[in-house]
Computed example of a mutant assay.
Amino acid sequence: MSGLKHLRNRVKSIKSTQKITKAMQLVSAAKLRRIKDRAEALDDYSSILTNIMNDVKLNINFMNLSPFEQKFFNEDIKGKPHLCVVMTSERGLCGSFNSQIIRAVKRDITKYQEQNVQVKLIVAGKKGYDALKGEYSNLIEEYYHITKEKYLPVALGIKNKILSLTEQDKIGSCSLYYNEFKNALMQVMTKLSIFPVEPLGINRPVESTKLPDSPFEYEGSNLVSGLVDLYVVGMIKHGFLQNKASEEAARMTAMDSATRNAGELIDKLTLQLNRSRQAIITTELTEIISGAEAL
Rank of each mutant, 00 (worst) to 15 (best):
I162D: 06
V197G: 07
G79H: 05
K161V: 05
L165C: 13
G134Q: 06
I109S: 04
I14F: 03
N9A: 12
G134A: 11
I101L: 13
K150G: 02
A39C: 14
L211D: 07
P215R: 04
R103V: 06
E207S: 13
I288M: 03
L241G: 02
A279E: 04
L176F: 15
R33D: 07
N64T: 15
F216E: 09
K120P: 00
S246V: 04
K159M: 06
F216A: 14
A131C: 15
L121F: 09
Y129I: 06
G134M: 08
Y136P: 05
G220C: 03
V119E: 05
I280D: 02
G234V: 10
Y231G: 06
Y129C: 03
Q25K: 12
H238W: 13
L65E: 14
E114V: 08
N74K: 14
Y144S: 14
S89Q: 02
Y231L: 08
P81L: 02
L241N: 02
I20T: 04
L132F: 11
I146Y: 12
Q272V: 05
C174T: 11
Q278E: 06
E287P: 00
E114P: 01
K12R: 11
N243M: 06
K133E: 14
M255F: 06
Q272M: 11
G157R: 13
Q115W: 05
S246E: 04
L42D: 08
E142G: 05
A292L: 03
G3I: 03
E284F: 00
L42K: 09
D169Y: 10
R260V: 04
R38K: 13
L163Q: 14
Y177E: 13
E75P: 08
G92N: 05
L285W: 10
S221V: 11
A294V: 00
D108N: 10
G239K: 09
S208G: 10
A258C: 12
S246F: 05
